[in-house]
Computed example of a mutant assay.
Amino acid sequence: MTRNLIPGILAMAAIVVASNILVQFLFGQWLTWGAFTYPFAFLVTDLTNRFQGAAAARKVVVAGFVVGVICSLIGTQIMGEFGPLVTLRIALGSGLAFLTAQLMDVQVFNRLRKGSWWRAPLVSTLIGSSLDTILFFTVAFSGALAFIEPANDVSWATEVLPLLGAGPMVPLWVSLATADWLVKLSLAIVALVPFRVIVGRLTERIA
């Protein structure tokens, strides 16, 4: 079983490392390049769940969490223009969001696995992605949680601006979270294509 998990663990680790690197580079005004790689972690979790079950998927998630923690620890030692690349709040938000959202994905997928082929991966990813976005951006940037790391100035994230530049007035971090969430929802649909292809090919090999 452990050997069979190696492909999933390696894929998850690669996505987590890539996302931690790419999150440092902006894509437009509201996103980073990491927003386009991280959602595929849900694809890895769902494929593992589909072929090896929920217990195996949880092991892959834990492996990804450990890799994420290591990346965060490294990030705290790298100084950027305004301080460490990874602050306590970002590290806490990232870890909490990843672990909670991925485990939720596993649970939802497992409950829906007997339905139509697309139902379990789509619904579980949509729920997991939404939870991930809410937890990360709230913990990392919400002014209400400033007590977590008082020395970390996130006033830039609480500046009130139009939502995505055109909507109602909200803190900047809400626009960042909304843009991130919309990308995750879009990629949840896109990921159905590789999910279907990979499942089909591996099923043929097993048969």
Rank of each mutant, 00 (worst) to 15 (best):
L96Y: 07
V17S: 02
N49C: 10
I127R: 12
V154P: 00
I90G: 01
I78L: 11
P171W: 12
G115Q: 13
I134R: 07
Y38N: 04
R201P: 01
L185I: 14
F36Y: 13
A101P: 08
L122I: 06
M1T: 08
A207V: 12
F136R: 06
G28S: 04
T76H: 03
L172Q: 05
P168G: 06
F65Q: 05
V66H: 05
T100W: 12
V199A: 14
L31A: 08
A207S: 15
F141D: 02
L176C: 01
G95T: 03
A91N: 02
P194E: 08
R205E: 10
I74D: 05
R205C: 04
A157R: 08
L172A: 11
T32K: 06
T48A: 05
T158K: 12
S129K: 02
T87G: 01
G95A: 06
V139Y: 00
F65E: 07
V197Q: 07
T76W: 05
R50M: 10
R205K: 04
L176Y: 01
V69H: 05
D132R: 11
I90D: 02
A35Y: 12
A56R: 03
I148N: 09
F137C: 01
A56C: 04
N110S: 11
S19I: 04
S19E: 02
W181F: 03
M169S: 09
L161D: 04
A11Y: 04
Y38E: 03
L85W: 08
F147L: 13
Q24D: 11
V69M: 15
L185G: 07
I21P: 00
S155V: 14
F25D: 08
D132N: 14
I90T: 01
C71V: 12
A188H: 03
L126H: 06
N110Y: 06
L96S: 14
N20V: 06
D132M: 09
G68F: 09
